[in-house]
Amino acid sequence: MNTTVIKTGAPMREADMNDATPKMEIRGVSKTYTTRKSETYALETTDLSIGTGEFVTIVGPSGCGKSTLMMIAAGLEEPSTGEILVDGSPAGPAGPKRSVVFQRFALFPSETVAQNIGFGLSVAHVSKVERTERIKEQLTLMGLEQFRNSYPKELSGGMQQRVAIARALIVRPEILLMDEPFAALDAQTRTVMQEEVSRLHRRMQSTVFFITHSVEEAVYLADRVVVMSKRPGRIKKEISIPHDAPWRTGDIEDAMTYGDFNELRKEIWDLVREEITTH
């Protein structure tokens, strides 16, 4: 398979890793919800850089503002302060440079699998020939060929999320945003999907910003884990995962057999637990 066609964003080279300009920069972003009666601080001022080809996961207790951060990063919500930069320049409104995979799949119920995957291309008026070609590649990549004419309601949760990922990848985003994409899946499907995303990332060197509430998932997938505090959310700690960690080639069940993995998991879990139990 020709991976250069389907890869997301620019290929990662050694130079990019050392490049001064990160792929995405969250600069001084905070969020306050103002109603007539009160103000709610959802997110404290946050700075975060994501390098080209890097896989960054965010973990934190539920309601800590990590989803808010994701919505702001995607351009779907406005920050109260700060800005989002992509390749050093302001990112502007939501668009295919930063495609999103949502927890609840968000597939268009009236469109077939192939139409869903091709959505981003058809709204951009990409020629039919190229569209067909690229849809076919995604179908193959995600193992969805036999479902190309099915409607989303006919697919299992795991298959639906595959369609959502293909739909986000086909537009060749600079960065892929994933908002707890596996939270709605059953445990076995989740394990399989985690491994597939890990494999996809290694193959395509895509830049991924990934939110989860599962510590295992965060450690297993990430180059860097960001731990967030409870509401109002702020970054509590960032932990880098060795690039050559041995568990990257197996699935998460294998990963649990590594001592290093479990140490990291324990360390991060302790950080998260403080946020849940302290008042």
């Binding site: 919505m71 351009g75 779907l76 919500e77 406005e78 409104p93 939501a94």
Partner: peptide, 9 residues
């Protein structure tokens, strides 16, 4: 900007 606003609302 208005576009973004309308999205969330």
């Amino acid at each position: 900007m208005t576009q973004i606003k309308s999205a969330s609302s």
